[in-house]
Design a protein around this nucleic acid. Structure first.
Lengths: 105, 105
DNA sequence: GAACTCTGTAACTTGTATGTTACGTAAGCA
DNA sequence: TGCTTACGTAACATACAAGTTACAGAGTTC
């Protein structure tokens, strides 16, 4: 669950959000954030090590692209808990129906 | 996305896993981990502040229960990326099979 | 080949998260 | 009324994460 730790940082989440729209080079990514370029470079490294992004060299630039595999893994982890809020919604539904019947009387 | 930050810590993820099976008091939770009871108390506080658990007093004990609401929120955030791996189900499948084999060892 | 561009790494500072031990407090029990 | 149990909080130590500036290296351009 390395992805969770990488995504705990809000800047890295924003980078992921950004890359969801397409490949970008490091400089362009950095220009979108209020922190220095080296700082963004470090964030990109963390994302890379978590497998969330892939890099592709293009001349002297480096193009970053989203890799959804770890997100799928996170989704799989979350699946275990899906029944919890599903049940809760069912319970809420039951409650509302009961209330409605009660009021209709 | 407060839940993500709370879940970045592996101990807290384990606590959540534990509570998925049912309500537990603080002492019992702490006994399952190799860290001190106050440390676990702190983790429980973080989970509480993230809305991931609820507390219910019972005599001098405090019973903790899972609250899935923030997980549902996380699921909603993740939904945005679901289309990305929908195209790559084969890759996920490979990964999950690998994980399963690893855990079986 | 010299100068410029793009990017990552090194070295350092600083804030925060996680752990520890010591202590306070509220509820049960002799 | 003590004494025990169950927790949380305070105070402190320490590791680590994220930021900065300075620098190095690879590629492009003239």
């Amino acid at each position: 669950m390395r992805a969770l730790e990488a995504l705990a940082d809000p800047t890295r989440r924003e980078i992921v959000d950004l890359l969801a729209e397409g490949e970008l080079d490091a400089g362009t990514i950095a220009s979108r954030f209020p922190v220095s370029r080296p700082a963004v470079s470090r964030h990109l490294r963390v994302l890379r090590e978590a497998g969330l992004v892939n890099v592709r060299p293009d001349a002297q630039r480096r193009l970053y692209a989203l890799d959804p595999a770890p997100l799928a893994e996170l989704d799989a982890w979350l699946a275990r808990y899906r029944v919890f809020w599903a049940n809760r919604l069912d319970a809420l539904d039951v409650h509302l129906r009961r209330e409605r019947r009660r009021k209709e009387r």
